[in-house]
Structures are given as structure tokens and as C-alpha cells.
Write a protein that binds this DNA or RNA. Structure first.
Length: 842
RNA sequence: GCCCGGGUGGUGGAACGGUAUACACGACGGACUUAAAAUCCGUUGCCGCAAGGCUUGUGGGUUCGAAUCCCACCCCGGGCACCA
């Protein structure tokens, strides 16, 4: 990695465990404590080796398309990498001296440049502010104090604060490049130093975090966009090839103060439910227009105008009566009912729609218009912040009317001309901190020379092995314990031959686990980690199953590592694992996670001791879907054990029938073969789909079938020995994957000398599975009323006739007219009658 | 808060839009036994003597037909979490 330019050293604040005196990876810290020892974690800045996994971020996302991972695993990987597309925008700063490069600017990262007009302040992270201080910014003591305190906050402090935002006015101002407005710059630790540029433009009108901060510190809130909703489904979905007719309109929110319900409208023709709305005629006063619409549509005439909160939304829909695409800009106006007096509504309106009163909760499920959720949110929450897409307003007509990505693009392009903005892509994924200060772990093969700097250990001296020591206690300084071992540390520089020192940090556990599967392919090779031929033969790994706890870090590191080797032409595939699945967890008998403190731990060894490994294995396969959690149950375990005994006894009896006299029972053979091959098909498919629980069910069903009095009596007759032998062989082969030990013994008893596990997997014969008779359900109005058994090749007409002739069916059809008959070939018959009413019961 | 899963009998769980509750556990009844365990046979979604009715978290929708598809909501589990 180092030679390829993908490893570097940096001063990095890390989590430090004061008890074990070692740096910790983020994943070793839980709730501010070291996961292993429970010690409170501290912050410490150390010089660390780091691998540039972020350079592979895009490929790690894109190549997920070429592999078959369990959905949620792929999704978790994508979320963890956290790619976001946005823009970097530069604000000029006033009132700062000595900032980096004397540029006196701050660059912010945003995914929403379309909301730039609503940026009423800028927030920089304490980390960035500290940099400014280092570069000579003369901040007030209060500001310096805040920066200092936030940088020294431990993980626990950060979480303890319950997310109450803190911050301080820096005294600096910034110029919004879109409208040249001068806005204050604040320092606050809700902005992360490690993400983006470490600074943001705050748009309180369209970002919940900024809104919270603005509220707390009484900063201005300015609207930059008006919500835009497009109907994409249902009756009013916009027609793709039609222009939009734009209308200014009002939307009346009418509350009945007595009941706290709101006046809604239900359109009769199409399924559309919303509020009272209407177009503005000419330069009509909006309040007047709203009152007129309320009267016309609902008849309520005594209204009290409450307020105009300045809410406008854009709603794009298809107007069915007018047959046109509409783009309505609704002006929301709030009214209360003075009294419930109404006047008659015109016939025309009454035919179209009817008024209904709904509470906010009822509105949620009632509304079918696209803006429905927005309306209930606004009514429900006085602090509702709209963060969705919208139409840009208030930019002096430069960008007004544009929306969404079009607006974002236009604004960035415009600012790009004056070097004030550019498109940028950011990731949540950070580079991989690769240093540990343990004794254990692979030593990082670097030699530090005062003259040549960090030099890679020459290939011929690899691998660097850990020295044998009596003690490997940690040191006080944060250096690896290896630093104290002089004759190991002190070496000659491979470049200049002068005195130099080995790197004493070691690699994390993840290092080895990133590529162990490659070594498994060729474990005795002493020339290379594996031969190219063997790698070509075996890679990629066909199926990698592992716990969910390794679906982000280990899996991501491992894929990165493999891709690096691929780039170095050391492995033949870009991805290590073709398929990735994950098993669920087995919970204790109390349905809780197993843990010593709960005392609900099941020890597999004791199960093996009392029931045997076959029972344990089969039970685990049977207990539930492979990838879901299930609670342990001793009773069910015993049930599985009983099954094994039954199938064992059955097999013994079948094997015992090796006499061959008389004419075999052909009907029995057909029946048994059909069942065996049906099971074979199911078992095969279930193994492929990893549905092991139903695979075991199928085997149980087969066993029950063969054990039934009717079948087993005949199967044990000497003349049917061939059928018995054939059956038991297939049965044993199918049992082999789930009860390997018992199956192996039975296999030997069948006279085989090779292992059952190397025997060829049986194939099912589709011809044997074919049924001659099938059972057909007969429904009336979708309800099962009878079943009939018919020949497989029955025609639809015949089927209908047979169905109609059934006694039960006749009974239920009596007095009803058949409106329609649905016949699904060889599947089902459904009679639809004139009424769904059922005969009254007395 | 966001992103994934999931919600079906007393229990674990089955079910290409087409007979809901396969398979197993438990429970109940019976056989064998002096007795118990083990084993074997039978019954077992709920209501009802029955005919029949009801039932897949809740409420709507699509369909001849929905556990399954669509919308809204509730609950449980997991992951991420001030990522702009």
C-alpha cells in the first residue's frame, strides 16, 4: 500500500483506552467505552498509519452490482460509504485576519445549493476554527474558550448532552455569493470537522438542524424555496407529453374550533380527497377568493379569517375534467368557523364533491392529494421544517421558478464562472486508520530513517516478524510495547545504510482477516501467498456466510484489500466474494440475546454430549429461516432427536429387506418413487435457496409417508425389496447434508465403501413426479365451498361442469344468479354470484 | 430522526395473487405397562351441538380472488445517527 501511494502517516485524534494503553478503532468503542474492558475512552492525538480506502469508495459501491449479496448487506455497505453529491461554495469573509493563505474565504459543502438564497448564517466546526486560530486569527476569549472546550470533549460528553446544540458567534461575517448578503459566522460543534469542508451554510428554513440552532440563538430564518409536489400515481397523475397550465390558487384551511376538526373535500368521481381549493380570478383578493370557494363548495358562510402565514406550495397534477396538466401555486390561508350555519350548495357542486370534517390524525389516511403529508405536518407541528424539493424564490428573478436538480445545477454553474462554486462529491467513509499500539499484530514493515524518512522494508526481508519477548505490557507514552525492544527496533536504513528505527505500530486484527481466504487456497506455498493458477481456479469465493456484525467493516475492508491486490495484478478477480449471506442469531430460551449475565447461554458441547452432533446440526437447520433470529427450545430439540431415531429405524428396516421374491407391487413403486422424487426436488431447491428449515420439513414428510402403516407394510414385503433399497439409498443421500454421521453409517450398511459425502447427489426425475389426479378447489365469491379430484388433463369446460355439479356448490348457488365464472386451468373454479349476502342463519 | 427487516394458532414457523395454518413443539384422549418414562395411534386456529360463521398487527384500496400487490397508521427487532 505504501509503495502504491495508498498509505500515509498523519496526526490523528483517536480513541484511547487508558487501561490497556492502546489506541482503539471506532468499532471497538461502544457508548463511549472500550468494548472489551469497559473503560471510559479518552481522546488522544497520535501519529498513525492510514490506508486510503476512500479512493476506492466509488468502486466499492458500483461493484456491488456484480455480486450477489443479501440485500440488506449491500444496502448497509452503501450507507456506510455514504456517497453524496453536492457542491462546494465559497463565501468571502470579513473581520478575520491571518486566515489560511490570506484568502479570507470559507468553503462550505452542501447538497442543496438550490437553498443558497436562504443561507442566513455560516457555521464552522471547532476543528476548522482551530486551524484559523493557528493561522493567526485573533478571536475573542469567549470564542477561543468554546473551540478549546469542544475539541476536548470526549465521546461520552458528546452523547450525554442530549443533542442540545451549542455554539458561539465568531464575530466574523461572510458574504453569500448568490445575493451578496452579509451573514454572521458561528462556531458550533454540531458541524463535524471531519466531513465535507468542516463548514456549512446554514439554511434554517429548509434544514432541521440549522432551524434548531437558529431558534436557539435567535438567528434569522429565510425561505428560499416553495415546496413542489408532483402527482405520479393514481387518477391525477400528470400526463407525460402535455404542457402545464399554470394557475395561481388558494387553499383554505378551515378549522371548526368546537370540534378541532378541519374542513375537507371528497371528490365523488375520482378518488381524490383534499382541502377546499380554487383558482384566483384576475387580481382578486386571496382571502375573498378563499371565502368564496368555501361558500360555493361547502355552503359554510360565517368564517373568521385567522392568518396568512405566507405558505405557498406548487402542486402538479392532471385535471381530469379539464383534461389538462395543471401547475397550481396554492396560497394557504387559515380560517375558523364562526358558526356552523350553511347556505345551500349548487346542484353542480353537490354532484361533484362533498364536504367532510376530519381531525389531523384522520386527515393522514384520508388525503389522497400529493401535498397531503405536507398539510398534516404543517398543521401538526408549528416548527415543521420543509426539507424536500421545491421551487426557488426570491433570487431577484435570476433562478426563480427553477426547481430541484435543475435549480441546483444552474446556481452552481452560475457561481462556477466567478470561481465561487463547484460540484463536489463527498463520502461518510473515512480512510482506514491502520496503526495499533499492541504488541500483537503484524508489524508494519516500515523503517524510519532520519535522512530518507519512511522507507519500505525490502521484499527480501519480509515478513517482519514479532520479536520473542517475556513481557508485552503497554507503555505509558502511547508507543507500542515494541518500541522498548532495542535490538529489534534499531536497524540499518535499507536506502542509505545509516542507523534507523523500525516502525513499532502493528496492524489491526482486520488486516489478516481481509485476505485469509486467499491463503486457504494454497496454504503451503512458500514462494507467494497463493499460486496464480490456483487463484484463477478458486476465485471468487462462491459463498461467504457470516454474521451481520461483519457486514460493514470487515466486509468492506476485505473488498478494498482484494481490489487493491487486483489493481496490483496479484489476484484475478475484482471482487473476493461472489455471494454473501448471513445467518440469524440464536437467542436464549427466554428469547433474549444469550449472555452469561442473563444465564441463558446454551452450550453446544453439552448438547453434542447428550444428543449428538447430528441432532444439534439438524435442529439448527430446522429451527427457523436461516437468516432470522430464533429462540432456543429444548423441547423442539428433543423433537428433532426423535425424528432422527425414527428415520434411522425406518432405514434399518428398509435396508433389512433385501430378499427378492415374487412380483413387485408396481402401484406402490410408482407412489413411493413419486414422493421420493418430489422430496428430492424440494430438498434440492431448498438447499439452493438456503431454506434449510423447509428442507428438513420435506424430509420429515417423506419419513412420515414411508412410515405410515399403509406404505411401510407393503414396502417391507420381500417382493418389494428393490423399491425399498432404491428408496433408502436416496433417503440416506438426502439426509447426508443435515445428519452427516447417521447418514454415513447407514451408507456403509448399504454396502458402500466410499463416504456418502463424496457420493453423487441424486437428481430428481420430472417424469416420476407427474401426478395423474389433482385436487381442484371450488370457490363461490372467492370462498372455498368444495374440492374435487379430477384427472390432470381435464379441460376447462369439463372442470366447470364438474364443479357446478357438486352438491355443496348447488346448495350455495341456490337462489343466486351466476354473473361470472372464473376457471383457472387445472387450478381452480370460482363462481361469482349476484349478491355477496349469505343465507341468514337462524 | 433516517435506512433495512419483521408482525400468521398456545409456541417455532409453512404458503409461484388461487384449498391459510405444511412440518415441528406443546396440550388433550387412547394403546402398551403393576406404575412411570420411552414408544405407538388419534384429536388439536377461534366461535358453534350442528349447519355454518370468523381468522394472517390496524384501517382503506386494487382484484373474480390478497398473508402475498398499493396507500396510511401502530407495534417489535437490527443498523446508522448533528454526514449539511
Amino acid at each position: 500500500f505504501y509503495k502504491a501511494g495508498l498509505a500515509y502517516q498523519a496526526e490523528i485524534p483517536i480513541n484511547w483506552c487508558p487501561l490497556e494503553k492502546t489506541g482503539l478503532a471506532n468499532e471497538e468503542v461502544v457508548d463511549g467505552k472500550h468494548e472489551r474492558c469497559g473503560t471510559l475512552v479518552e481522546k488522544k492525538t497520535l501519529n498513525q498509519w492510514v490506508l486510503k480506502i476512500t479512493e476506492y469508495a466509488d468502486r466499492l459501491i458500483k461493484d456491488l452490482g456484480d455480486v450477489d449479496y443479501l440485500d440488506r448487506i449491500a444496502v448497509q455497505q452503501v450507507n456506510w460509504i455514504g456517497r453524496s453529491e453536492g457542491a462546494e461554495i465559497e463565501f468571502d469573509l470579513h473581520g478575520i485576519s491571518g486566515q489560511a493563505d490570506d484568502k479570507h474565504t470559507v468553503t462550505v459543502y452542501t447538497t442543496r445549493p438550490d437553498t443558497l438564497g436562504g443561507a442566513t448564517f455560516v457555521v464552522v466546526s471547532p476543528e476548522l476554527a482551530q486551524k484559523w486560530l493557528d493561522n493567526g486569527w485573533k478571536a475573542s476569549d469567549k470564542v477561543k474558550d468554546y473551540i478549546h472546550k469542544s475539541l476536548n470533549k470526549s465521546e461520552l460528553d458528546r452523547q450525554d448532552e442530549n443533542r442540545e446544540k451549542t455554539g458561539v458567534d465568531s464575530g466574523i461575517t461572510a458574504v453569500n455569493p448568490l445575493n451578496n448578503e452579509e451573514v454572521p459566522v458561528w462556531v458550533a460543534d454540531y458541524v463535524l470537522g471531519g466531513y465535507g469542508t468542516g463548514a456549512i451554510m446554514a439554511v434554517p428554513a429548509h434544514d432541521e438542524r440549522d432551524y434548531e440552532f437558529a431558534k436557539k440563538f435567535k438567528l434569522p430564518i429565510k425561505k428560499a424555496i416553495e415546496p413542489k409536489f408532483i402527482a405520479e400515481t393514481g387518477d391525477s397523475a400528470v400526463q407525460p407529453d402535455q404542457d402545464f397550465i399554470k394557475r395561481e390558487a388558494v387553499c383554505a384551511v378551515v378549522r371548526n374550533p368546537k370540534t378541532n376538526e378541519y374542513l375537507c373535500i371528497s371528490w365523488k368521481e375520482h378518488h381524490m380527497n383534499g382541502l377546499v381549493t380554487g383558482g384566483l380570478e384576475g387580481d382578486e383578493d386571496p382571502v375573498k377568493a378563499a371565502e368564496r370557494e368555501i361558500r360555493e363548495e361547502t355552503g359554510y358562510k360565517n368564517l373568521r379569517f385567522v392568518e396568512d402565514p405566507g405558505i405557498y406550495i406548487h402542486s402538479l397534477f392532471y385535471h381530469r375534467q379539464k383534461k389538462q396538466n395543471r401547475w397550481a401555486r396554492f396560497h394557504f390561508l387559515f380560517f375558523e368557523l364562526a358558526n356552523e350555519e350553511t347556505e345551500p350548495v349548487s346542484k353542480k357542486e353537490a354532484a361533484l364533491l362533498k364536504p367532510v370534517w376530519k381531525t389531523i390524525d384522520e386527515m393522514r389516511s384520508f388525503f389522497s392529494v400529493v401535498e397531503g403529508t405536507f398539510i398534516t405536518n404543517v398543521l401538526d407541528n408549528p416548527n415543521y421544517v420543509y426539507t424536500g424539493e421545491g421551487v426557488v424564490v426570491d433570487t431577484g428573478n435570476k433562478f426563480d421558478g427553477l426547481a430541484g436538480s435543475e435549480a441546483r445545477h444552474a446556481i452552481v454553474e452560475y457561481l462556477f464562472k466567478t470561481n465561487k462554486a463547484k460540484h463536489a462529491t463527498k463520502y461518510k467513509l473515512r480512510d482506514w486508520i491502520f496503526s495499533r499500539q499492541h504488541y500483537w499484530g503484524e508489524p508494519i514493515p516500515i523503517i524510519h530513517c532520519p535522512k530518507d524518512g519512511a522507507v519500505a522494508v525490502p521484499d527480501k526481508d519480509l515478513p517482519v516478524e514479532l520479536p520473542l519477548v517475556d513481557h508485552y505490557e503497554p507503555t505509558e507514552t502511547g508507543e507500542s510495547p515494541l518500541a522498548a525492544i532495542d535490538d529489534w527496533v534499531n536497524v540499518k536504513c535499507p536506502e542509505c545504510g545509516g542507523p534507523a528505527k523500525r516502525e513499532t505500530d502493528t496492524m489491526p486484527n482486520w488486516a489478516g482477516s481481509s485476505w485469509y481466504y486467499l491463503r486457504y487456497i494454497d496454504p503451503h506455498n512458500d514462494q507467494e501467498f497463493a499460486s496464480q493458477d490456483k487463484l484463477k481456479y478458486w476465485l471468487p469465493v462462491d459463498l461467504y456466510n457470516g454474521g451481520m456484525e461483519h457486514t460493514t467493516l470487515h466486509l468492506l475492508y476485505s473488498r478494498f484489500w482484494h481490489k487493491f491486490l487486483y489493481d496490483q495484478k496479484l489476484v484475478p478477480t475484482p471482487e473476493p466474494y461472489a455471494m454473501r449471506r448471513s445467518h440469524g442469531m440464536i437467542l436464549g430460551p427466554d428469547s433474549q440475546k444469550m449472555s452469561k449475565s442473563r444465564g441463558n447461554v446454551i452450550n453446544p458441547d453439552s448438547i453434542v454430549e447428550s444428543y449428538g452432533a447430528d441432532t444439534l446440526r439438524l435442529y439448527e437447520m430446522f429451527m427457523g429461516p436461516f437468516d432470522e433470529m430464533t429462540a432456543w427450545s429444548d423441547e423442539r430439540l428433543a423433537g428433532v432427536s426423535r425424528f432422527i431415531h425414527r428415520v434411522w429405524d425406518l432405514s434399518q428396516r428398509l435396508i433389512g429387506n433385501d430378499k427378492q421374491a415374487g412380483a413387485p407391487d408396481g402401484i406402490l413403486a410408482t407412489e413411493v418413487d413419486r414422493m421420493v422424487h418430489k422430496t428430492l426436488k424440494k430438498v434440492h431447491e431448498d438447499i439452493e435457496g438456503m431454506h434449510f428449515n423447509t428442507m428438513v420439513s420435506a424430509l420429515m414428510e417423506l419419513s412420515n409417508f414411508l412410515n405410515s402403516r399403509e406404505i411401510s407394510d407393503r414396502l417391507l414385503k420381500p417382493e418389494n425389496a428393490d423399491t425399498a433399497q432404491r428408496t433408502v439409498r436416496t433417503l440416506v443421500l438426502m439426509l447426508a447434508p443435515v445428519v452427516p454421521h447417521a447418514a454415513e453409517e447407514l451408507w456403509q450398511e448399504l454396502g458402500e465403501r466410499e463416504s456418502v459425502h463424496t457420493a453423487e447427489w441424486p437428481k430428481y426425475d420430472p417424469a416420476l413426479i407427474k401426478e395423474e389426479l389433482i385436487e381442484i378447489p371450488i370457490q363461490i365469491n372467492g370462498k372455498l365451498r368444495a374440492t374435487i379430484v379430477v384427472a390432470v388433463d381435464v379441460s376447462d369446460d369439463e372442470l366447470e361442469k364438474l364443479a357446478a355439479g357438486q352438491e355443496k356448490v348447488k346448495q350455495h348457488l341456490e337462489g343466486h344468479k351466476i354473473l361470472k365464472t372464473v376457471v383457472v386451468s387445472r387450478k381452480l373454479v370460482n363462481f361469482v354470484t349476484d349478491t355477496l349476502e349469505v343465507k341468514a342463519t337462524n
